[in-house]
Amino acid sequence: MRRQLEGPHLPTLVERVRAEYGNSARIVSAERVRRGGVGGFFARERFHLVIEVTPRPGQVEVRSGVAPDGTVSGPVLAPPAPATSLLELADRVSAQEDALRAGAAPSPEVSTETPAFADVLARLHDTVAEAAPPVPRTAPRVFPDLTGRAEALGIPPTVLVGAHDPVVLYRRLAAWLESFPAPPLPAHAPGQVLALAGELPAALRVAGVLAREIGAAQWDIFVVTPSPSSVQGIPLARVFGDAAAVAAQRRSWGQGRPSKVVVVDAPMLPDLRGWAHGVLAALAPTLTWGVVHASSKPGDVARWAARLGQVDALALEHVAATADPASVLTQCPVPVGLLDGRRATVEVWADLLTARLEAER
């Protein structure tokens, strides 16, 4: 018989197949879908697995329902929609997000057939079948000295103690990442004023990404800097030099008007923090995001954000340049919203950290 399982994390589903159906289960299809959301935000990602189960003598059928880990199971009466390669799905999701930023309409689900999918299913089936073989056939893939390398990345060593299996490793990372508060995200709606504080080149890059996410046009991007003549690529009519000019312009951005993105020149320099704080107070933005280099010390970022006032989220740039990307999660109270222009979801963080752990082997 066939059964369908659904949940937020693929490793959790595979573990559930192991626990409930043993090595007789065969994975027929696997699919990651994204539903809902507005303008690329708030979409929920879930995995769907369809498995073929050979009932064991005396086995009691597990009825449809929701498990404590958030997965859902139920009988399958017909084959599911075509599934996608899990190895390529992250790239396809990223491609859809790029298309979304470029103005293309998003599809309600991400599901694309690929010839490589049969190979993926075979490997997933092997993962289930090798859960508890009577006689070990090959040595399992292990991660020696994992806790030390995790700590070097900024992950508390207790998170990965005993995680010598790739599935367990991913589950532990995902559970730890989910314990952090999600950043407040701007909505795709009119009347918003989104402030981005940081060094101008980096903040302007992030401004272009978030402007498209909230439906703001390029001419709705403004800059505030103590050196207006130094700004490149933005007409002087959209460049302000002090808090008074910002306050006068802010009054014309009433409710129902197109959303605005305002870049505030606020590098982590002591002499500019007070000036930037005054600009942000006059601007009274809907949300304030700080744009920082990922290799900046988390303590310095926290102090910089406190001097600016209310910073709701961080956009980290040049993540590859830092040796401990996860340290900002534990040492800075401001949540992370973007990693090099990508939304900092649990999946994106987990993929980043898993790749770093693999690279350090």
Score class of each variant (00 low, 15 high):
Ala244Leu: 12
Val239Glu: 08
Ala216Ile: 10
Gly208Lys: 07
Ala189Gln: 11
Ala211Thr: 06
Gly208Cys: 06
Leu196Thr: 01
Ile214Ser: 06
Pro186Gln: 01
Ser229Glu: 14
Ala244Trp: 13
Pro226Ala: 04
Ala216Gln: 12
Ala245Ile: 12
Arg212Ala: 15
Ala247Val: 11
Met268Leu: 14
Ala211Arg: 04
Ser259Ile: 12
Leu204Pro: 02
Ala195His: 03
Ile234Thr: 12
Asp265Met: 05
Leu194Arg: 05
Val193Gly: 01
Ala237Ile: 12
Pro181Asn: 09
Lys260Gln: 15
Val239Phe: 00
Gln232Leu: 12
Ala189His: 06
Lys260His: 14
Ser179Val: 07
Pro228Asn: 02
Ala247Phe: 08
Ser229Met: 12
Gln192Ile: 01
Ala203Glu: 11
Ser229Leu: 15
Ala187Thr: 08
Gly215Gln: 11
Pro226Ser: 03
Ser259Glu: 05
Ser229Ile: 09
Gly233His: 01
Ala216Val: 09
Pro226Glu: 00
Leu204Val: 03
Arg251Asn: 09
Ala187Cys: 04
Ala211Lys: 00
Gly254Cys: 10
Pro226Gln: 03
Gly215Pro: 03
Arg250Leu: 13
Phe180Cys: 01
Ala237Leu: 15
Ala266Phe: 02
Ala211Asp: 04
Pro228Glu: 06
Pro226Lys: 02
Trp219Asn: 14
Gly254Leu: 10
Val263Ala: 03
Leu210Lys: 11
Ala182Ser: 07
Val246Asn: 10
Phe180Gly: 05
Arg251Thr: 15
Gly215Tyr: 12
Leu200Pro: 01
Ala207Asp: 04
Lys260Asn: 09
Ala203Gly: 02
Val193His: 08
Thr225Asn: 00
Pro201Arg: 00
Met268Ile: 12
Trp219His: 12
Arg251Ala: 15
Arg250Ala: 05
Arg205Glu: 14
Glu199Phe: 11
Ser227Cys: 13
Ala182Ile: 00
Ala248Leu: 08
Leu210Trp: 13
Val209Leu: 11
Ala243His: 03
Arg238Ser: 12
Leu204Ser: 04
Ile214His: 12
Leu185Phe: 07
Gln232Phe: 13
Ala195Ile: 01
Ala216Lys: 00
Gln232Met: 13
Ala247Glu: 13
Pro190Arg: 10
Arg238Asn: 10
Gly191Leu: 02
Leu194Ala: 02
Ala237Trp: 14
Val224Gly: 10
Ala207Pro: 06
Leu185Asp: 01
Phe180Ser: 03
